[in-house]
Design a protein around this nucleic acid. Structure first.
Length: 800
DNA sequence: TATCGTAGTGTTTTT
DNA sequence: CACTACGATA
């Protein structure tokens, strides 16, 4: 074999490998083919970092280091070279022989651990890997920090003195546990509210500080109390065989620090580690990753310091800023080209973020073209803001956009209310991500608590939650005596209840306790025999929960329906997990599920969520609402420069979600938590600058704008309305509410009328039902079917 | 022990 | 405004 042939082969090999990954820019390509050693990818918003991540993993598995290597396994023949030429020119399939020649030091899929921020992101990663790698992708572990840790802890919990079926407490459980502790130890909840205590403890755990250390380092009374409460809380959870969210990380790191042999096993298993959203990792998460990567340091992290928005949860931007110190010899790659947004949008984003100090510094650019100017609307109040958004959605739909191309983003969940009300009345389909989760509803949590007591009988907290739900005449007094006995014996509450007849102190409530225990045993037996979804149905029946709800009329009926939904959710889980389906597995999935995980981008509806939840998503049309000082940036951040910078990063995240058009809005007055306030304009508006904005404002502050589709009289251009706004405060003082009376007689509808709806198009009125000063109009649309809307809210006009 | 009513309170963002 | 916690009553 000649040198010349080999050289030709190596060049060809590189070309074939590159071709198999499609279009990548030079910087992206560099990231994909950097295989070994520490790598920091600074990825701006919309820079195609997921593509890079997927391709990088695919390259590890398929080609290993072949792209930059001159190693060849086997002997190259002229035929091989010809075949590669043909492949490059005509495409086609690889033979097994060629595939072998293209690979050098490949990585087995199960040696790769990819950590993402949400389950949804992990799922997407797996899907895209599946498309590229087929069955191999199944063996790659792609999960969140929390899920990955649970996986490890389930296997190793005993080393730490926890049962392997430990319960995962959500923040609600944590709070209950904390309140019980407060009561037991007579702690003043004014001086240190349980919520603050929990978040302080959480932040200690994020920094891997134990209760003992916290005690030692406490310098003031409050810190001392936190340390004391921390110790008590930790003891309580340990006794219940439970871990909270922060424990999942904290205990895993402790496991690795204290059991080098265990760490060694996992180090050998995962030889390549990738972490997405690295800017949002905590000290504990950094330690976890660096422990696992220790040795070969094949660690690749992807992040954007400008998008760090979880400082309040213990994330330290330090992790990204000092990556090169932590991992000497680290390679740093910057992805600054944006493929998502227009120049107008990026200009606005860059203008805002450049007001922050202490960042790595980068400027996004794009060749997507200038695009429309950023729109800025000044509304009278939140209803008017909602109406304006609805009318823009209508306009865009006419231009051919779909509902699901629109996202409404806000600072806090409470802001969704007015928009939701308006959209519901107008009959515009929408979906809210976040707020109250399905699994947080009382009835659902109760049934899940039954299940978790079956899985982990040590868990007194969840037991207390359900022992008298439905009412079984087991009150607080009885439970306290039983708990005291349990504490004395050092066993669980449930064990005491099981043999209640042995304790004279419990004689008065012996029957109810025994009745409960019987139910419990019945359920345990059912857990052995039935499938998971059957078990859930059994729990609902045997516990008496169904009977209780049935006796509650309408309210109980909807709750019963929710429980029906729970049963079908479990059924879906059983079908998906197949043989792997276990009770613990299901409870774990429920505990770690997040709001965004349930977001379905296929459904054609407008979507509403917080800017936090929108991280990582993109939409053609994005509305950022409530651009007011005190709302965004929030009240809490006004006096803290650090918090303000985080708000600014959040603003940057919000702006960069938009692909085509960005709409900002502010209301002159807004009702928040029951009080009407007038907030000044958000500083972010001034930071963007009037030259990038195109303004418009509510025209006549008092007259049913909601129903009038055209913004008659709205001013266009520049920011000249600022002075106008100031002068018109008096005129706009009475809160406008679109009522039938205000709108006059001209816009009533009658059956048979031909009408046009901004969202659904043209149709015929079928029925009109007057109700409380408004009316429900039932319309058969030519294309959208039959819908009901409220006459005063729907963007509806009568056609002559 | 359960249930009803009232007073008070606290409100960001989330795995 | 919405929720919780607590107290009075059946």
């Amino acid at each position: 074999m000649s040198d010349k042939l080999e050289r030709e082969f190596l060049t060809l090999r590189r070309q074939v490998i590159e071709a198999s990954f499609g279009r990548l820019n030079p910087v992206q390509r560099d990231a994909v083919f950097t295989v070994n050693g520490p790598l920091l990818i600074l990825a701006g918003a919309g820079s195609g970092k997921t593509t890079v991540l997927v391709n990088r993993i695919a390259n590890l598995v398929r080609y290993g280091t072949a792209h930059d290597s001159d190693k060849i396994f086997g002997t190259v023949t002229q035929e091989d070279v010809d075949a590669l030429h043909a492949l490059l020119e005509q495409g086609g399939k690889l033979t097994a022989r060629l595939a072998g020649l293209l690979a050098v030091d490949t990585v087995r899929p199960w040696q790769i651990l990819a950590i993402t921020f949400t389950n949804k992101a992990a799922g997407e990663l797996k899907n895209r890997l599946g498309d590229m790698l087929g069955a191999d992708a199944q063996e790659i572990v792609a999960s969140t920090f929390h899920s990955a840790c649970v996986r490890i802890l389930r296997r190793e919990a005993e080393q730490l003195g926890y049962p392997s079926a430990f319960t995962i407490y959500d923040s609600d459980d944590s709070q209950r546990a904390m309140k019980e502790l407060y009561k037991q130890q007579n702690i003043d909840d004014k001086f240190l509210p349980p919520r603050s205590a929990l978040s302080a403890i959480g932040r200690l755990k994020d920094r891997m500080i134990s209760p003992q250390q916290a005690e030692k380092e406490a310098s003031d009374i409050r810190a001392k109390l936190v340390a004391q409460v921390y110790a008590g809380y930790a003891k309580r959870l340990r006794g219940a065989g439970a871990m909270d969210f922060d424990d999942l990380i904290y205990q895993t790191v402790r496991l690795f620090q204290e059991h080098p042999d265990v760490l060694e096993r996992y180090r050998n298993r995962w030889r390549y580690i990738l972490v997405d959203e690295y800017q949002d990792t905590s000290v504990a998460q950094f330690l976890l990753v660096s422990l696992l990567a220790g040795g070969n340091n094949n660690i690749c992290v992807v992040g954007d310091d400008d998008q760090s928005i979880y400082r309040f949860r213990g994330a330290t931007i330090e992790n990204i800023l000092s990556f090169e110190q932590h991992f000497p010899g680290a390679k740093v790659i910057r992805l600054e080209q944006n493929y998502r947004s227009t120049t107008s949008i990026l200009d606005a984003a860059n203008r805002v973020i450049q007001n922050n100090v202490g960042r790595k510094g980068k400027t996004l650019w794009t060749d997507n073209g200038q695009g429309e100017k950023v729109q800025y609307y000044l509304a009278d109040n939140e209803q008017d803001e909602a109406a304006h958004i609805a009318s823009i959605v209508g306009k865009n739909l006419k231009k051919g956009a779909r509902l699901r191309d629109h996202a409404i983003l806000y600072r806090m969940n409470a802001q969704s209310g007015p928009i939701e009300t308006y959209f519901a009345r107008a009959g515009i389909p929408y979906k809210i991500v976040g707020g109250h989760r399905f699994f947080d509803r009382k009835e659902v949590k109760d049934i899940l608590s039954y299940l978790s007591v079956i899985a982990n009988p040590q868990d007194d907290l969840r037991l207390r939650r359900i022992i008298n739900e439905p009412a079984r005449k087991i009150g607080a007094a009885t439970l306290d005596t039983a708990a005291n006995i349990a504490a004395g014996l050092g066993c669980s509450l449930l064990e005491v209840i099981g043999e209640a007849e042995n304790y004279p102190a419990l004689s008065r409530s012996l029957t109810p306790l025994k009745n409960f225990y019987e139910i419990y045993q019945e359920l345990c037996a059912a857990a052995e025999e039935q499938t998971l979804d059957e078990l859930v149905a059994t729990v609902i029946d045997c516990s008496g929960y169904r009977r209780m709800l049935e006796a509650q009329g309408e309210e109980g009926q909807t709750r019963l329906e929710n429980l029906g939904e729970l049963v079908s959710a479990v059924k879906t889980y059983v079908e998906e997990a197949g043989e792997e389906a276990t009770l613990e597995g299901y409870l774990e999935q429920v505990a770690l599920i997040s709001d965004i995980d349930g977001y379905d981008e296929e459904a054609d509806t407008v979507v509403m969520m917080t800017m936090h939840a929108a991280k990582g998503l993109e939409f053609d049309y994005v509305f950022l609402i409530g651009m007011e000082e005190g709302v965004f940036p929030g009240q809490m951040s006004q006096y803290s420069p650090d918090d303000l910078e985080e708000e600014r990063r959040l603003c940057y995240v919000g702006i960069t979600r938009a692909k085509k058009e960005l709409y900002l809005s502010r209301a002159r007055s807004r009702m928040i938590f029951g009080k009407t306030n007038r907030y000044p304009e958000s500083r972010f508006i001034a930071e963007i600058g009037s030259d990038l904005l195109e303004g418009e404002e509510s025209a006549m502050p008092s007259f049913g704008r909601a129903a009038s589709p055209a913004h008659g009289g709205a001013r266009q251009g520049g920011m000249s309305f600022k002075s106008f706004a100031a002068g018109s405060t008096l005129a706009s003082a009475p809160a406008p509410r679109p009522t039938a009376a205000r709108r006059g007689a001209g816009v009533k509808f009658a059956p048979g009328d031909r009408v046009e709806h901004k969202v659904f198009g043209k149709g015929v009125v079928l029925k009109v039902t007057p109700i409380a000063g408004d009316s429900i109009v039932e319309i058969r649309f030519d294309t959208a079917g039959v819908k009901k809307t409220m006459a005063n809210y729907a963007p509806l006009t009568r056609l002559e």
